[in-house]
């Protein structure tokens, strides 16, 4: 089993950006507004263009989203807990965006390409919103994407479970800006209203 430790890189970036943000904000000494949750990457981080397969079985490139802000979540459809919770939150984000919803794409990337076929993804993303995008691909396709986003994923099998395997994975929501760069990262469970507030600052 291979363990991807790219999240270590991500943590370093996050800490660095937090430190930089702290330096920059200390000047005026006035009362500061409650900081919104999530980490702003400034400057944004370049991520390589990639091609995965969408829920219709068609190739889908990151660059297809150019001009839109995109929310990315990495998960798998056999996940009963964090993944549907986050997609339900995406749905709330979309509702809160109102007329601006068209500016934002919502993308679920499977970290379980073996079981998450396009057909299965169709059912999954449509259960939340027919416009949500589901992407899947094999491990070789996913690996560089995970590295660029700072996503960790790892298959785990347990003797005592009837599940063939479970997948540990990063549960953060990643925001790609209109130029295809990684701009914001929200921890699992971030209030959809806070996500919307930060998204609105991107346009």
């Amino acid at each position: 089993m291979t363990v991807w430790r790219w999240w270590g890189l991500w943590v370093a970036i996050a800490l660095l950006s937090t430190a930089l943000a702290a330096c920059g904000g200390g000047g005026d000494g006035g009362p500061t507004a409650t900081p919104l949750p999530g980490t702003l990457l400034d400057p944004p981080k370049d991520v390589g263009d990639f091609t995965l397969t969408n829920q219709d079985g068609q190739p889908f490139r990151l660059s297809d989203l150019r001009g839109k802000v995109a929310l990315f979540f990495f998960g798998y459809t056999h996940c009963p807990d964090i993944c549907p919770t986050t997609l339900a939150e995406f749905k709330r984000v979309k509702a809160l965006l109102g007329d601006d919803a068209g500016r934002v794409a919502f993308v679920f990337v499977s970290v379980d390409g073996e079981r998450d076929t396009p057909e299965r993804l169709t059912n999954y993303v449509r259960a939340f919103d027919p416009q949500f995008i589901g992407l899947t691909g094999d491990d070789a396709a996913l690996r560089p994407i995970a590295r660029d986003f700072g996503v960790f994923y790892q298959r785990v099998s347990y003797e005592e479970s009837a599940a063939d395997y479970l997948v540990d994975h990063t549960a953060s929501t990643f925001v790609i800006d209109q130029q295809g760069r990684l701009r914001l990262v929200f921890p699992y469970g971030t209030d959809p209203a806070a996500i919307v507030a930060r998204l609105r600052a991107l346009w």
Partner: peptide, 9 residues
């Protein structure tokens, strides 16, 4: 603390 989700029996 790294926002990695783990589910286990």
């Amino acid at each position: 603390e790294n926002d990695v989700m783990r589910m286990r029996p």
